[in-house]
Design a protein around this nucleic acid. Structure first.
Length: 463
RNA sequence: UCCGGGGUAGCUCAAUCGGCAGAGCAGCGGACUGUUAAUCCGUUGGUUGGGAGUUCAAGUCUCCCCCCCGGAGCCA
């Protein structure tokens, strides 16, 4: 018999004489009336399936009464209306096959709630919990919706390299990639001789695919990347990972306003999609993790983002009836506390802040005509902070070259990036969205380590 | 990396002035029941993160180290 996923049984309105399901036992409750209740989950839906196992089954004593949380079973039986309160349908088993028991003395998960901190030590098992199953389904839905959004808009999915020689934007410390013997590297004049390394030069894990994406945008018009990036920063916060996934669209013939439009459309599309596709999971998060989550997502999905300039933001902050740890004045970068005040207190909605001072932003951002700002934008959301960072890129060769030099960067390394401005240069724009932060915001999960299966942070690469 | 809070039974946490290391849950045994965080009775379970020191006596005080959490910085 063909196996049916539990989500399809739960959605089924017609009762069936014979079904086959398989999954992991969540609970077993015995009735001395001579039968047992099993709750089985296969991860296909938030809810599990209730199974009634009659005592007459030949392996009832030998197997069924030994089933505990975490055991894996297959159940054949009749799908019927449930007289109980907690579910609309249930299966009356005619056969129960045990694939694997889970010794209750050893199995670390239990019916009671376990802290997220503890579950990080059990990352190989935590997907079996309600919360992490729901996170996995939501993360999957957001990934699918991302591709759908860009594909529907004629963006081309681009694979940028994970190993790179360029320190793209000075976006942080990089992990070095080498095949040299670290105990005894070859040396020339006391310095490590990288000409003998695998690539004949020092190489690193990428911190961003943006610069490479620009080369394709200036040929194929619209592209996006969706891949892993790496930062070797010793960051210990609930919003940072050493390895995280980023989505970076890049558009030719597009200015900062087009860029902001895209970011806003994209984020709202994702919220709308996941509200439809993962309703039960989101309602679970709303109830147990972050009260008001669903209403917040609904509200953001159906309202415009507020757009303000950096200069206006500084103005609002200067007049704020709050005292900040870091004083605000034009020219300083916005601190977390400032961003939070803007998005959580002053405006109480997602914000797009544009036109930052050029001195605090990356070299590739387009200089505005005012001579002191660049066409940068950050999307700020309540609770998570900066979720998107982007800009219109500097397309003028002389201005870009000047900017690289002004930032003290090695001009020679950017020869191919500068070439894009020598041959058929056009205005273009793009942004990066941290996928983990997106999942954080959509699920309400407090810690980014709990929205990716195996988080990489300083001192943590166990799995 | 900096600041603050932590690390005690499988899990979540108590432990007064330095004085016999405890509870709930889980597990195990039993009772009961169309149950659904089931309930009731009984019961097993400890190198108190690691190391050194002070003391008659250290979970508790001192020093060093490791790890976790929150905030900051960096950023997405």
């Amino acid at each position: 018999m063909k196996r049916t996923l539990i989500k399809h049984l739960l959605a089924s309105s017609e009762y069936r004489a014979s079904v086959l399901v398989a999954g992991w036992v969540r609970t077993r409750r015995d009735s001395k009336g001579g039968f047992s209740f099993l709750e089985i989950s296969d991860g296909s839906a938030f809810s599990g399936l209730q199974v009634i196992v009659p005592g007459e089954l030949e392996n009832y004593e030998s197997d069924v009464l030994r089933l505990t949380i975490g055991s894996a079973v297959a159940v054949e039986g009749e799908l019927v209306e449930s007289p109980g309160a907690g579910q609309s349908v249930e299966v009356h088993a005619t056969r129960v096959t045990v694939y694997g028991f889970a010794d209750p003395e050893e199995y670390p998960l239990q019916k009671k709630r376990i802290s997220f901190e503890k579950l990080r030590d059990l990352a190989h098992l935590r997907a079996r919990t309600n919360t992490f199953g729901a996170v996995a389904r939501v993360r999957n839905a957001l990934a699918y919706a991302t591709h759908k959004f860009y594909q529907d808009r004629d963006f081309l999915y681009l694979h940028t390299p994970m190993i790179t020689a360029s320190d793209a934007e000075g976006a942080g410390e990089m992990f070095q990639v080498t095949t040299l013997d670290l105990a005894a590297p070859p040396r020339v004049d006391g310095e490590v001789d990288y000409s003998q390394d695998f690539f004949g030069r020092p190489t690193y894990l990428t911190v961003s695919g943006q610069l490479e994406a620009e080369t394709y945008a200036l040929a194929l018009d619209r592209v996006y990347t969706f891949g892993p990036t790496f930062r070797a920063e010793n960051s210990n916060t609930r919003r940072h990972l050493a390895e995280f996934w980023m989505i970076e669209p890049e558009m030719a013939f597009a200015d900062l306003s087009d860029n902001a439009d895209l970011a806003e459309d994209y984020v709202r599309y994702l919220f709308r999609y996941v509200l439809d596709a993962c309703r039960e999971d989101l309602e679970f998060f709303d109830k147990w993790v972050d009260n008001g989550l669903v209403a917040r997502l609904e509200s953001i999905a159906s309202s415009d983002f507020r757009r303000i300039t950096y200069t206006e933001a500084v103005d609002v902050l200067a007049k704020a009836p709050t005292s900040f740890e870091f004083p605000v004045s034009w020219g300083v970068d916005l601190q977390s506390e400032h961003e939070r005040y803007l998005t959580e207190v002053a405006f109480e909605q997602p914000l797009i802040v544009v036109d930052y001072p050029k001195d605090i932003k990356a070299f590739y951002m387009r200089h505005n005509d005012d001579g002191r700002t660049v066409a940068a934008m950050d999307v700020l959301v309540p609770g998570v902070g900066e979720i998107v960072g982007g800009s219109q890129r500097e397309e003028r060769h002389d201005v870009l070259l000047e900017s690289i030099e002004a930032k003290g960067l090695p001009v020679d390394d950017y020869w191919w990036y500068l070439d894009l401005r020598r041959f058929g240069s056009v205005p273009h724009s793009g942004f990066g969205l941290g996928f983990g932060r997106l999942v954080q915001f959509v699920t309400g999960m407090q810690n980014i380590r709990d929205v990716i299966p195996f988080p990489r942070t300083p001192n943590n690469a166990e799995f």
